[in-house]
Amino acid sequence: MELEKKRTTPSTPALAQKRAAAYRLGTIVLIALAVLTAIEFAVGRSGTAIVALLIIGLFKAGLILQYYMHISLLWSDEGGHG
């Protein structure tokens, strides 16, 4: 019980703050993806704008690659988990 509490409770306020910031970033990316999906759906329903839909798709993929897949870690010298 004590061990479980230790594992789930932030050890320092700094760590808790870092963690909250990481969760917040994830939420912001989700909101951006949801907005882009809504725009994509509206554009798709309004006509046959293939190029516009591809551009929106590229933006969505870029957000996922950068913020969820951490692609920049590939050329990071530190080599940690990021």
Binding site: R7, T8, P10, L15, R19, G26, V29, L30, Y68
Partner: peptide
Amino acid sequence: SFFMNRAEMAIAHDDRR
């Protein structure tokens, strides 16, 4: 994907639950 990112961030910041 949001929840997967949350899981990864949680283990990276010692939040096992």
